Simulated assay, not measured.
Amino acid sequence: MKKLLALLCVGVLTILGFSAISSASASPHYTNTVTYSGQGLNSDGTLQDNRCADGVAPYLLFVLTANKATAADITLPSGTFAMVQSGNGSFKYQAAYQDPSALIGVAVASYNGVKTNAQFVISHGCPGTLTSSSPSPSAS
C-alpha cells in the first residue's frame, strides 16, 4: 500500500512539474507588460498599413516602445519570443500572419525599464493573397 501511495505521489508531482514548465515557457520574461489592444487596425479588423510585395510571405510586424527598456519579448498564441531592439526603448518582432483582430487582448509584450506609457502596436503587415476555390460559372 505504501508503494502504491508513493508511486501515485511521484506521478502527481511529475504532472505538476510538467505543468509548471509549460506555464513558465509561455509567460512573459519581464516584469512590465502591455497587452495588445488593436492599435494599427481599422475598425473592421484589417491592417491600417498593408505592405505586400511579390514574394513576401504573409506577416505582422509588432512594435513596442517602452521608456528606458533594454530588453523585451512578445507572447503570442504560438509562444513567447525575444523582440529585437531597434532603437532606444524600441523593439520589433515579425510574426507569421494571423488574424490580427484575434490578437486583441491576447498578444502581450513584456519588457524591463520604466513602467510608463508603453505602446504596443502592429506597425504593418501583409495578409497574403487569398485564393478563391469557387467553381467558375457555367453557361446555361
Rank of each mutant, 00 (worst) to 15 (best):
T46A: 03
L5S: 12
N32Q: 14
M1S: 11
Y30T: 02
L60G: 03
P135F: 12
I122Q: 01
D49P: 09
G87Y: 05
I104P: 01
A118N: 13
D49L: 10
L8N: 15
T33S: 06
D44Q: 00
L61D: 01
G89M: 02
A82E: 07
L103A: 06
A57E: 15
G125Y: 01
A72R: 00
G45V: 09
T129W: 11
D49W: 10
A24C: 08
A72K: 00
G125I: 02
S25R: 11
S90W: 05
Q85E: 08
G38T: 04
L41T: 06
P135H: 13
V106E: 12
Y111L: 09
T75F: 00
K3M: 14
I122H: 00
L47Q: 01
F91H: 01
Q85N: 00
S140G: 11
S133Q: 15
T75K: 02
Q94M: 10
Q94D: 03
S138H: 10
G87H: 03
A82S: 09
Q94A: 08
I15K: 14
Q85G: 04
L103D: 10
V108A: 09
P58V: 07
S25L: 14
S22D: 15
P77G: 11
S23I: 15
D49R: 14
Y97N: 11
P127I: 04
R51Y: 11
H124Y: 11
Y30W: 02
S136Q: 15
Y36I: 08
T75R: 04
L61R: 05
K115D: 12
L76W: 07
N32W: 04
Q48W: 03
A26L: 15
V56Y: 12
A82F: 06
S140R: 07
Q48T: 11
L41Q: 01
S43D: 07
K92Q: 11
V114W: 10
G105M: 02
M1V: 15
Q48P: 01
Q94T: 14
H29Q: 12
H124G: 03
G40W: 08
P58G: 08
V114G: 12
G79W: 12
S78D: 13
A69Q: 00
S101H: 08
